[in-house]
């Protein structure tokens, strides 16, 4: 009976699709995420085209801080993929090192972002101030929530979830790869958010 409840093909590729069900599932989730952010980018374009005046992002937002955050996320993507590569090389201690760095970089991103938000609130700039701040806080806020989600996911894979490495290394590698796909997607979204909001 226990076999009936088991989710199949989460470590081995499915014979029909050629990929694991878990990887296909993560990609379907990411596809839905593309549409979620796509809807908000679409709203941004509509608001901007319809506005009689639209501020240049660099005049009211902090470009150096956002550039720093872009670099932080890019480095975190490298450390994330290096954590997966370390597992592929059967080096668990290196995996933990790179995963811990990825988590710290994610936290650093949020700290920098919180400085930016605090500065805006000090000057009484809220989502309700105007359409620019409305879409700025919506897009960066939703992205920030994704970063928080990624940090918790990575923390799980660094601490309690890493026990799986001893019992089922193949499945654990699959989980780290799936978490990596999500983390890279979060980086990818920021790559588009940064010029859209701060530089144009």
């Amino acid at each position: 009976m226990s076999d009936a409840a088991e989710i199949r093909f989460i470590s081995k590729p499915h014979p029909i699709t050629g990929v694991t069900n878990s990887k296909l599932g993560v990609w379907c989730f990411l596809a839905s995420e593309v549409m979620l952010f796509g809807g908000l980018f679409s709203a941004y374009i509509l608001l901007r085209i319809g506005a009689t005046e639209w501020p240049h992002g660099s005049t009211i937002l902090n470009v150096p801080l956002a550039t720093l955050n872009t670099m932080i996320l890019i480095v975190s993507s490298v450390t994330m993929v290096m954590s997966w590569a370390s597992l592929a090389l059967k080096n668990f201690s290196k995996y933990r090192f790179y995963m811990a760095i990825t988590i710290l970089l994610g936290i650093a991103f949020l700290v920098v972002k919180s400085f930016e938000y605090a500065h805006k609130f000090e000057h009484h700039h809220y989502p309700s101030t105007n359409n620019f701040y409305g879409i700025y806080f919506t897009l960066t806020g939703l992205h920030g929530l994704h970063v928080i989600g990624g940090i918790f996911l990575n923390l799980y894979l660094l601490l309690p979830g890493s026990k799986l490495w001893k019992t089922n290394p193949e499945q654990f590698m699959g989980r780290v790869e799936a978490a990596g796909l999500y983390w890279h997607f979060v980086d990818l979204v920021w790559i588009f958010l940064f010029p859209t909001l701060y530089l144009l």
């Binding site: 549409m35 796509g38 809807g39 679409s42 374009i45 509509l46 085209i49």
Partner: peptide, 8 residues
């Protein structure tokens, strides 16, 4: 999705 708002 990106093109639709430009049609306005």
């Amino acid at each position: 999705l990106l093109i639709i708002p430009t049609l306005s």
